[in-house]
Nucleic acid binder design. Structure first.
Length: 623
DNA sequence: GCGGATCAC
DNA sequence: TATGGTGATCCGC
């Protein structure tokens, strides 16, 4: 199996601005712009820069294939945002990034001056050959994800929504139905913006308990095809079906067709799948659906046209940085390999070359509990400036965190306070201590010590996170408890080592617990296209991903009328998630479960990057 | 060890 | 008229 390689792009640079200048030699190629769009006709010069308009469209905007007329939609979004603090913050970030790019370009000019690029390219070609030798086409990796998961579950439960544009979620949408997506409505979009794009838009509440229920069914199906399947969220997973196909004497396509049919049969929900020799290719669903020939040529050809933004680890920032040196597609990486090589620190040569070759990790393993690095809670609220009120928010967050840590069995040594100003700027303040912390009073006290010196501030978010974790369920509980009372010192790290690869079974933990832990966080994702998968590339259109917020706990709730319609049927019920018992009716229990699911749970997942190289990003930013 | 940044989901 | 939450990683100090 191939381990992913390295770091990725990153940034950094010196300062100042630079008139692009020579550049290596920007060959036209795809790096040049679409002829149409960029006419200098940008009438109003004080218009938002193109980069800002794109930024305001949200993280998902660039990721999906989206129609080419996206610019109109972006305009509307930018217009609706204008003047808000959110907008100003985005503008600031866009400006900072633009400056950062100027520095990079200047650095590039310095670094390439008088250099024999052909020679540099020759060196890269040697690396290329070396990496090519590591190509592994022996494994059959599948990436599956549900089509518009939340929206389709809602559709299942409320058929009258069929054919109508609707969004799931309140202030911010967790999902947009296909009919809403036609208007440019996306998950993660603020409700009022969505309404502007689509006045007819219907808002539907989230029903997390339902999604969880369906998710379990789906995952159970996937697991039949790969016991080591790795769930990435409630509607997405990677599988290695090499063994299954061999055992049953079937092809990957047959296997996946069958699996998809099973999911649909058992849940009435549809699932998209990509089959390829590694995770990156599978996720990009070559040809929209299904298989890409497991051959070097086909893979190289596919990669050549693939937008750099589709590569995991390349987000909006890295996309712009790479674009600034002429790299928009993976094929462009080769064209500009000399510059990438000379600026390895900034861009990550190894990672990019691997990406160009279409080589990535093909290791699929579920995430182990002991890989967890942190646990936290945070809450957004209407801007507050009053000290007492802020402390109250902090206390609430501390309580939530305690509940979570207790429920999941963790304690830790370092507490980090996070706060967001009303300007949307984010800051963190941390403190490590000598004892293990997981109780509300401790969390609150430490948080307070970190927050008070910063006041006065006007905040819109407060969060707490604990790191340097110790697993209170590791080993036998006796040792775990014993340690809890011992002074926190570096030695114990044993519990956090990865013992996952030694084949030992998943330690113990109640089966219910294990199941819960395996349940990934919730978020809606991907556009899975509203169409059939086109023949040509550009088939699959991954869009964005949005993890739902916890249910808004209306702090104000004046005229709350809930009392008026309290149904009968009250009964002592136990929440399957947190175990708490309460006297409620079914609706009440459901609401509580929704609450639990939305804030609690949370996958241990995610740690995959540390196991297989990740394309992380390294940036380097001053200030 | 801390703080800022970027990213995935 | 209200632009999320959880977790990870990397870099520079």
């Amino acid at each position: 199996m191939i381990e992913d390689s390295q770091p990725v792009p990153s940034t950094s640079a010196s300062t100042s601005k630079v008139p692009n200048s020579a550049a290596s030699r920007a060959p036209n190629s795809s790096s040049s712009r679409a002829p149409n769009s960029r006419a200098p006709i940008s009438s109003s010069k004080e218009d938002d820069p193109d980069s800002l308009v794109r930024r305001l469209a949200g993280p998902s905007a660039g990721k999906a294939g989206l129609a080419t007329d996206q610019s109109d939609i972006n305009r509307i979004i930018a217009e609706a945002s204008k003047g808000s603090k959110f907008y100003e913050n985005e503008k600031r970030k866009d400006k900072d990034l633009t400056e950062r790019i100027d520095k990079i370009l200047k650095l590039r000019d310095e670094v390439t001056r008088g250099v024999d690029l052909a020679k540099v390219e020759a060196g890269v070609d040697a690396l290329l050959t070396e990496l090519e030798g590591k190509r592994d086409l022996s494994q059959t990796i599948v990436h599956v994800d549900m089509d518009a998961f939340y929206a389709n579950v809602e559709l299942l439960d409320n058929p009258s929504l069929k054919g109508k544009p609707f969004g799931v979620g309140h202030g911010v949408l967790t999902t947009a139905s296909y009919d809403a997506r036609k208007f440019g409505v996306r998950s993660g979009m603020a409700g009022f913006i969505a309404k502007k794009l689509c006045p007819e838009l219907i808002f539907v509440k989230n029903h997390f308990a339902r999604y969880s229920e369906m998710s379990k069914k789906i995952m159970a199906v996937f697991q039949r095809y790969d016991a080591d399947m790795c769930p990435m969220s409630c509607d997405e997973a990677y599988l290695n079906v090499t063994g299954y196909c061999k055992e049953h004497g079937i092809t990957a396509e047959e296997c996946v067709s069958e699996m998809r049919a099973k999911v649909e049969e058992e849940t009435k929900l549809t699932v998209s799948a990509g089959i390829a020799p590694n995770k990156m290719l599978a996720k990009n669903k070559p040809n929209g659906q299904y298989c890409l020939p497991f051959e070097r040529e086909a893979i190289m050809d596919f990669m050549n046209k693939l937008s750099i933004r589709k590569i995991p680890g390349i987000g909006r920032v890295n996309e712009r940085l790479l674009e600034s040196i002429g790299i928009k597609t993976c094929g462009d990486i080769y064209i500009h390999r000399a510059v990438v090589s000379l600026m390895d620190k900034q861009f990550g040569l190894h990672f990019l070359i691997q990406t160009y070759l279409g080589i990535a990790s093909n290791v699929v393993q579920p995430h182990a509990r002991e890989e967890r690095k942190s646990i936290g809670a945070e809450r957004t609220f209407n801007t507050l400036g009053d000290k007492e009120k802020l402390l109250q928010k902090l206390e609430e967050v501390a309580q939530e965190l305690e509940d979570d840590m207790e429920h999941s069995g963790w304690t830790g040594r370092t507490v980090t306070l996070k706060y967001k100003l009303d300007t949307y700027q984010v800051f963190t303040r941390a403190r490590s201590c000598d004892r293990w912390v997981n109780k509300k009073e401790e969390l609150f006290k430490l948080g307070k010590e970190l927050l008070l010196p910063e006041l006065p501030l006007k905040l819109r978010l407060i969060g707490l996170r604990v790191t340097k974790l110790k697993d209170l369920r590791a080993e036998d509980s006796v040792a775990g408890i014993k340690r809890f009372f011992e002074p926190a010192k570096a030695e114990d790290e044993g519990s956090n080592k990865k013992r996952k690869l030694d084949g030992s079974p998943q330690v113990h933990g109640a089966s219910a617990e294990v199941l819960q832990e395996a349940m990934p966080g919730f978020h809606e994702d991907n556009d899975a296209d509203m169409v059939e998968y086109p023949e040509d590339d550009d088939g699959a259109v991954d869009e964005d991903v949005f993890t739902p917020a916890s249910p808004s706990k209306k702090p104000k709730s004046k005229a709350h009328s809930s009392r008026t319609s309290k149904p009968a049927l009250l009964a002592e019920q136990e929440c399957p998630i947190c175990g708490k018992t309460m006297e409620v009716d079914n609706q009440g229990l459901n609401d509580h479960i929704d609450f639990c699911l939305s804030r609690d749970v949370i996958l241990q997942a995610q740690t995959e990057a540390s196991v297989e190289g990740r394309p992380a990003s390294k940036r380097k930013n001053k200030r």
